[in-house]
């Protein structure tokens, strides 16, 4: 009862901080974009094959680009607070609806890749910690080295080569097959099939990280005094490892996973580009090429949102795993 109230209080404080952080991110993003050379007017002029200076000024006035920096910034933040992220001239659509149409694909990729890396990483770590000199343990060391040293786009290209040429069992591009018909499950299965390769590619680095860390913390925990106590109580090996040791070795892994979330999101940009996954990553890539400032800002905003919310959840998850975290006294 007391704990629940406290949990709620802490959560609200965290949410408050998150909002402040988000506004800071907005200001920073906008300032950086403003400092970069070139704007929408330049791109339009380029697309039109060159226009005169007066027309250029006209365009700038239309988009409000002739106003002082602070006025533009204030206007932008005011709009964002009203959930208006602006209008993408390149796609001729509202930024918000563009992003919302792409966000689910990215969330699906990021969340499944992160979960895959976490679950498989912890399982590998635990198994190899129980037999530090076993084959699996050496495999984990190798996997960690490989996963960590191979760049994500290279792993992606490797996957493409293997699965398009040698073993064509998974689709290598896109998110769904337009020829597939059927109900919800047929569609879901189709998406899952498309998801496999990008998901594995994106999770490879993080799988390496988490399995290494899980192995190290698990080995440390297995040698700890309270594990000896658990054995002295006459508990089974399974209880000792999966009840007493595992819960203690989870918190470092969860902490790292939270810190790595931003890396997962930025990794998604590359992976989506390699596998033509229709998510925010490909949209970001195209919007940068088109100097579509409102869209770039919008995507940056949403990425920041994903990372901040993810960190918030990590924080709260840690509280559930380890009672020492947080103010309960």
């Amino acid at each position: 009862m007391d704990g629940a109230v406290n949990f709620l209080r802490v959560t609200l404080i965290r949410v408050f901080y998150a909002v402040i952080l988000l506004i800071a991110v907005l200001i920073l993003n906008f300032s950086l974009m403003h400092m970069a050379p070139g704007d929408v007017a330049d791109t339009i002029a380029q697309a039109a094959g060159g226009i005169d200076a007066e027309a250029l000024e006209q365009i700038r006035r239309e988009y409000g680009l002739d106003q002082p920096f602070l006025v533009q910034l204030g206007r932008y933040i005011g709009n964002v607070l009203r959930f208006d992220l602006g209008y993408s001239f390149f796609y001729s659509d509202k930024v918000t609806s563009l992003i919302l149409s792409r966000l689910p694909a990215t969330l699906l990729l990021v969340i499944t890749a992160q979960l895959l890396a976490l679950v498989v990483g912890v399982i590998l770590g635990v198994f190899s910690a129980r037999k530090p000199n076993g084959i699996l343990s050496h495999f984990v060391t190798f996997l960690a080295l490989f996963g960590y040293s191979a760049p994500v786009f290279w792993t992606g290209l490797l996957m493409l080569v293997i699965f398009s040429l040698m073993i064509p069992i998974f689709p290598v591009a896109g998110m769904r097959d337009v020829t597939i018909e059927g109900g919800f499950f047929a569609q879901a299965f189709d998406i899952a099939r498309h998801l496999v390769l990008p998901m594995i590619t994106l999770s490879s680095i993080f799988l390496a990280l988490y399995s290494r860390l899980a192995r190290a913390t698990m080995m440390e925990v297995l040698g700890s005094d309270y594990v000896r106590t658990a054995k002295a109580k006459g508990l089974t090996n399974r209880q000792v490892v999966y009840k007493h040791a595992l819960k203690n070795s989870l918190s470092p892994v969860i902490t790292l996973a939270g810190l790595q979330l931003s890396a997962v999101v930025s990794g998604a940009v590359l992976v989506e580009t390699v596998f033509s996954w229709p998510g925010l990553g490909t949209l970001a890539f195209q919007s940068i090429l088109a100097r579509d400032t409102p869209l770039i800002l919008g995507i940056l905003f949403f990425s920041a949102l994903v990372v901040i919310v993810g960190n918030l959840l990590t924080d709260l998850a840690l509280r559930l795993v380890d009672p020492r975290v947080g103010g309960k006294k």
Binding site: D225, Y226, R228, T229, A232, K233, G234, K247, N248, R324
Partner: peptide, 20 residues
């Protein structure tokens, strides 16, 4: 173990599992 013969240890600060 823990039933007919049980044991207490030297380090009370670390001998209990912190998360239960």
């Amino acid at each position: 173990r823990g039933n007919e013969i049980s044991m207490i240890f030297q380090e009370p600060m670390t001998s209990l599992n912190p998360v239960y």
